[in-house]
Design a protein around this nucleic acid. Sequence first.
DNA 1: TGAAAATCAGACTGCGTAGTATGATTATAC
DNA 2: GTATAATCATACTACGCAGTCTGATTTTCA
Lengths: 201, 201
Amino acid sequence: MTEERQAKKREKILEGALRAFLRDGYAANMDVIAAEGGVAKQTVYTYFKDKETLFAALVDRLMERFVLAGMTAELMELEPPAFFRTMTQIALQRMDDPEYVGMIRMIIAESGRFPELADMYLTKLVRPGIESLAQYIRESPSLNFSDPEAVARIIHGALVNFMISQEILNGKYSMPMGRERLASSLLELVLFAAEQAKRAR
Amino acid sequence: MTEERQAKKREKILEGALRAFLRDGYAANMDVIAAEGGVAKQTVYTYFKDKETLFAALVDRLMERFVLAGMTAELMELEPPAFFRTMTQIALQRMDDPEYVGMIRMIIAESGRFPELADMYLTKLVRPGIESLAQYIRESPSLNFSDPEAVARIIHGALVNFMISQEILNGKYSMPMGRERLASSLLELVLFAAEQAKRAR
DNA sequence: TGAAAATCAGACTGCGTAGTATGATTATAC
DNA sequence: GTATAATCATACTACGCAGTCTGATTTTCA
């Protein structure tokens, strides 16, 4: 049997799991997962030991997909205004991806049952993002904040929480706010503060 | 039968529910909930129609507890440095309350199954907090940001997300950062930016 | 004290579902 | 073209759990 064939089956299973878990969380039904993947239930169990393993594999794979979508080299070379504008826009665009949003919800929801996933999320996605951001701040002559990493966390937190309240908690209906408003104010906050920090030296 | 007696029973049930739901999420077992409350299972069902009702009642009550713990009048009268320092500290102190942290996790986790709870959280806790903050910014002569509400959301988001990553996702172990660092940088960011904004006029 | 209401313990029902077993069907490879 | 391995459909097992029922015990209050 071809490895390729195995890979295809595995892929179909994960596709079914993706849809079901995204819709129903960890409570998703294994029969349904198999059906959505167009695959026999038994086959699911030949590729994955049990539900936990499948869930972990799925979230893992989902995270992998978003690892690269971070800080590129060319981004890091922009001047602060363009850099923050671009970075913010990229971060906020993720709000439109139901798979990204669903992944975040699942990680938070199951952080009790699957602490390794929460850990992986922080290690693979959050930390690198914050570190790149902090590094950019640190190395920008025009931005001299006293604690670049803390500033990076503030920026990151503001963006992530905006997504959580707007998309996960449905704030886009009950307390909507355009992304541009958030983005502009964030830009204003950071650049003005940087300007003043420079002056204060 | 005394109303008071009913109230006591109801209270015991909710105490059991609190512990069980906080530990196991909505997956908590009704037998266990009754046992933890020191109450017969049947009694639970005389006070609450079903599990959903009980869960909603519990989260509702939990939110009620944190509604008042917001912006007090005297806080609003402080000058910006003291105001932000105090406000930030109050917000970050909630991280030490497992009931607060657990409530947030449950609301996010069950926002699919219980959208009304997510809505209530935004309406009763988040919006008032952001509005008070925005109002303070708007009415402070020394703070003239172009969009006070957006700035309020940024500050609020940074604080909430710090709690989520540190406490819910266990970042306090894998990527720890002291609250004072976050608080100081937030203060620096806001005050410096405000200073510059004033100058820019 | 005694009748009515509330609570109790615990058994029971019904259902959903994770995981397994089976025997038939299809694809792979030599 | 045949043997081998993979996949399929489906039935079955075992178990956990929400919600109900019952009959005994306790509390309330007149």
